[in-house]
Simulated assay, not measured.
Amino acid sequence: MIKRPASKFKHDKFKHCWQRDTRESNMLFLMKQRKRGSCNLTQALVSFILVVYGIGSQAQERVIWHTADFAPYFIQDGPYKGQGIADRRLQLVIAGLPQFDHQVISGVTPARSNSEVVQKDNLCFVARIRTKAREQIMAFTEQPIIHTLSNGLITTRNRAASLTPYLNKEGALSLREFLLRSPYRLGLTPGRSFGPGIDEVLNQVRPIRPQGMVEVEADNHFRSRLLKLLYQDGYQAILGYPEELDYFTELLSLRGEELVYLPITEEPPLVAGHVACSKSDLGRRVVQAVDQLISQASFRQKVQDAYRHWLDPASLARYNRLLNRQSAQ
Rank of each mutant, 00 (worst) to 15 (best):
D69Y: 06
T249M: 02
D21R: 09
N324W: 05
P144L: 01
A289H: 04
V46S: 02
L202W: 05
K32E: 13
D199N: 13
Y184M: 08
V216M: 11
R128L: 06
G187K: 01
S113M: 11
R209S: 14
R223I: 11
W65M: 08
I264Y: 04
F178K: 03
L149C: 00
C277D: 11
L293N: 05
H66I: 03
R36E: 05
V271N: 02
S162M: 12
T109L: 06
I85L: 02
S162E: 09
L163P: 01
V275D: 03
Q143I: 04
C17E: 13
H11E: 13
V205T: 10
S280G: 08
R285W: 01
D305H: 07
H11G: 09
I198P: 02
L173T: 07
S193R: 04
P210F: 13
V46L: 06
V271W: 00
V216Y: 03
E61Q: 15
L167T: 02
L259C: 10
E266K: 04
G197N: 06
V46T: 08
D291I: 05
A86R: 00
Q329M: 12
A127K: 07
V303F: 01
L239C: 07
E177G: 13
Q76E: 13
I294P: 00
F125E: 05
P313R: 04
P5D: 15
I264Q: 05
C277F: 04
W18F: 11
Q136M: 12
